[in-house]
């Protein structure tokens, strides 16, 4: 279950962003991934609940955007959606294709809650 290792890497990035931007907490994290990333969304969400404990993102919602597998045909140039284990061109059927989507495993965005000015003044 490499999802936990990946989540730890995610938490490192999120914590760094929150620190840089002086955020109070992280409210949501959006990641984008495709079937060819080799990572299971459900396992990642489960691992996230473990990895986020005690961090600035403990209460954050993890939103997973599933990105489709897409290929470009090296023979006819057509682009089409495909299955992870059937990366064939839908137009001409050729198997000489290049994956142009569906292998992503990316942190897309983070939503932060910033301390408002009033509470900042109180703190000072």
């Amino acid at each position: 279950m490499h999802e936990l290792a990946i989540c730890e890497s995610l938490m490192d990035q999120v914590e760094r962003i929150a620190l840089e931007r002086n955020a109070q907490c992280v409210t949501s994290i959006v990641i984008g991934m495709g079937p060819l990333s080799g990572v299971e969304a459900q396992l990642l969400k489960h691992a996230y609940s473990i990895a986020s404990t005690g961090t600035v993102a403990e209460q954050a919602e993890l939103i997973v955007e599933s990105l489709p597998v897409r290929v470009r045909c090296n023979s006819c140039g057509a682009e089409s959606e495909a299955l992870a284990n059937k990366l064939l061109c839908k137009t001409c059927g050729d198997w000489h294709t290049t994956v142009i989507g569906g292998d992503e495993l990316m942190l897309l965005s983070v939503e932060l809650e910033k301390p408002d000015e009033l509470s900042a003044e109180v703190l000072h």
């Binding site: 990035q13 962003i17 931007r21 955020a23 409210t27 990316m106 942190l107 897309l108 965005s109 983070v110 939503e111 932060l112 809650e113 910033k114 408002d116």
Partner: peptide, 8 residues
């Protein structure tokens, strides 16, 4: 009240 940071 929130800041959305695009990371990619």
């Amino acid at each position: 009240g929130k800041e959305a940071v695009t990371v990619l």
